[in-house]
Amino acid sequence: MVFFSFFLTFLLLYKYAALFVIAFVAALILPIPASTTLAAAGAFSSQGYLDLGTVLIVAFMANVAGDIAGYLLARRYGEAVLYKIGFRRVLESSRYRALREYFLSSQWSLIYFSRFLTQIGPAVNLLSGLVKVPYKIFFLFDVLGEASYVLLYALAGYFLGSQWENNVDFFIKAALVMLSLGLTVTLIQAGIYRRKTRH
């Protein structure tokens, strides 16, 4: 809780700048509690301390910027870095090729649903860049996913208002719903792709 308290105080002191930094860094690489911070920002908006519209725009832009930065860095330098640090055998293995094929078979659902889980979002961004998911596909489903994620958490915090902190498990359940739905859709999508490539 002390760890999370730091982000809340940071948000209260520096408002939208803090929200941007937290969301951007979480989307890029670090597993920090960005979802709960976003919900808190929504709650602070309900009390007039922040403006809800500005919170939505800033959080959305920061998340998309962080995702695209991770994706582009991995796309441009990912393979070269991995080769250099000794992952040649992994990259040239059949398992990696199978993983790459699986990822490309269900890219849109993986990209979209991973936006709701800040812990795996950065990994999906890096993997998308590494396997060279087309720019347009990544951007489209990233934007759609981030818009849905920002609206869900910020509005949940907004409507919970001053009681948001006592109902953190509500957000956890929302994340579980999206995680399980994402898993199901991804599996079905991969199965359909597999059937198409066999025929």
């Binding site: 359940k173 929302a174 579980l176 719903v177 995680l179 399980s180």
Partner: peptide, 9 residues
């Protein structure tokens, strides 16, 4: 899992 999560949510 989805059904359970949706129910509790």
């Amino acid at each position: 899992l989805f059904g359970l999560a949706l129910y509790f949510f």
